[in-house]
Design a protein around this nucleic acid. Sequence first.
DNA 1: CGGATGATCAACT
DNA 2: GTTGATCATCCGC
Length: 196
Amino acid sequence: MAIPPAPLTQAFFERDVDVVARALIGAELTFDGAGGRIVETESYDPADPASHSYGERLTPRNRVMFGPAGHAYVYFIYGMYWCLNVTCGKGRAVLIRALEPTVGLDEMRKRRKSASDDDRRLCAGPGRLCQALGITGAQDGLSLLAPPFALTRRRARAAIVTGPRIGLTKGVEAMRRYGMKGSAYLSKGFKNESGA
DNA sequence: CGGATGATCAACT
DNA sequence: GTTGATCATCCGC
């Protein structure tokens, strides 16, 4: 019997949020049997004007960001989409922006209404990802380290590319978006990424 | 390719 | 009343 992949622990997340955002690239995330490898993340913290936790202001929406690390902060955006973050304690969080789908492909295609054989965009973007995995506000505050979630460490070191975050009007210049170099499952390309 | 636009609503001012 | 950590679609090059 094969040794199961090591699950991440809460201490993994109680670190500098940019360290965590990079370390999560290549980790495996699933919800209720659907998910894949994380290939794209962004970091947010209370000193960041683009963050929902900016200035340490506690509101009904962002309360989970100030709770324990390793939990899901899920919020509703643009009247249509949900976005999933991993909390890192103290108002810090990592936005999960894209997955390379590995398990539950049929379920995900069904939820995304994608009849296509091309899965490159199935989980490419925070809104698509939540739609594919079936994540909504009902999961806000749940631990990502226990069922129905599972989050396991990557097996091999991944080459990381960095760039500015997406969809912001404040903090645009910060290079706090991280991606797996050469991945075909990113929401958008990285400028510095040459070739594959 | 890249840029503009509409959909649709909870949180915030 | 305005804004937004998005996406699909349309339009022009």
